[in-house]
Design a protein around this nucleic acid. Structure first.
Lengths: 225, 225
DNA sequence: CAGGCGTTTAAGAAACGCTTAAGAAGTGCC
DNA sequence: GGCACTTCTTAAGCGTTTCTTAAACGCCTG
């Protein structure tokens, strides 16, 4: 999406009635530029930064298929939807293989057109790698490693990583051994397992990170005292 | 496209007749993995590295729409085509807005399905790095060979080359066996195949290049710890 | 200072990965 | 089309890492 408000849409449609109609239809959601022949379509397509294009097939001066092929050959990767009366499967194949991303036939349903355009312009929020800070350390769950702010990287085993992640997820909260046991180990294990892993972590990271709350359990961060 | 040969396709279709039929239809162009319910679809969708998915709407255990929404919410951006009998414009809008990229209704034209899948998986000539450096080695993907900085050249088989290229494409990223399996092998293969190829590569190149992340997968790159 | 609680160590058990070898599948050549 | 060769895939035995237990030792709290 190149813009903060509505996305930009290039509409290439020669029908004097349908063109303005579609433009008006899409206006609430897109900044629509309407051109009525292939040459103008090519010019605008090459020079502008469009978020999406809707192109008719039967166009004067330059055919829709030729227009799309020309745009693609120039490296324009903008999503393109063909909107046309030619509805044979064979025609669709030709249109899609020319480089378009979607193909709709007239008469069309306005809601479907809108939905298909949304699908073409949709961008996925690239999920930022979930990283957790623990004092001077940064935990990378996918890699199961922690790195200190000064670049030293220590790899953890699966259980070590789970335990550290659990404690770090809610700083200051005190976890009992039973809580940690049932959540990350086999419930039948001895509570002493937790102690062992806390020891491993303290040795790998640094003693100060995990605090012992005598008679209760373990915690990350400085709570009441 | 993640692979040198056919792209991987996850087909989720519960119809006992139509499923295998579509799978066979697409087989020449895709490495198809067929699953017959939403839960399996979700599992494969999340763990594998697919190039495209074809999903039916009416699925046992987990509805197609719910499946797509679940995949998208987990950050899976793979192109998805819905293939279903429900053809109302309203249904299409719902399907597309759930996160699919295209929507086809049964009965469908085989040629059109193929063309729409091509459109979804099409990648624009993004100048693929002709040479990739991996430690002291230089990978030439087109020739499927690696050369050490001191001139020794080792030729790789197709799978070896794909695996090495995949790992090298994103240094430091840890790839699970399932990801690599669906991307470069048949999804039905045993995960142990990956181990074998890693072993071949380590023998041909050098042990230190590919790092094992115990319990997770494999990785190229920064091993300092 | 005594009893409980936490820490540290070591060692056995279980899970996981490495290596090997052999059969299956694919490919090219005659 | 058959043959030889390469490549792919499976599976099983062995070695390594990780998990879990248990026991000895030290520290906190009343």
């Amino acid at each position: 999406m190149t813009t903060a408000d509505r996305p930009s849409l290039l509409l290439v449609e020669d029908d004097a009635v349908l063109g303005p109609l579609i433009a008006e239809l899409l206006d609430p959601d897109y900044r629509v530029q309407l051109v009525t022949n292939g040459r103008d379509g090519l010019h605008h397509g090459l020079t502008g930064a469009w978020d999406v294009m809707v192109i008719d097939r039967g166009l004067p001066v330059m055919d829709g298929i030729a227009l799309i092929a020309a745009l693609r050959s120039k490296g324009i990767a903008t999503p393109i939807l063909i909107l046309t009366a030619l509805g044979d499967a064979d025609q669709k194949v030709r249109g899609l293989d020319a480089g378009s991303n979607d193909y709709m036939t007239k008469p069309f349903d306005a809601g479907e057109l809108a939905a298909r355009l949304r699908a073409l312009t949709r961008t996925f929020p690239s999920p930022a790698p979930a990283r957790v800070m623990i004092g001077d350390w940064e935990l990378d769950p996918t890699r199961r490693s922690v790195r200190s702010v000064y670049g030293l990287t220590v790899s953890l085993t699966a259980k070590e990583g789970q335990l550290l992640a659990a404690l770090a997820a809610e700083p200051d909260r005190v976890f009992t051994r039973d809580e940690l046991l049932t959540a990350y180990f086999h419930a039948s294990d001895q509570p002493g397992v937790i102690d062992t892993y806390v020891h491993h972590l303290r040795r790998k990271i640094s003693k100060a990170v995990i605090r012992t709350v005598h008679g209760v359990g373990y915690q990350i961060g400085d709570a009441h005292e």
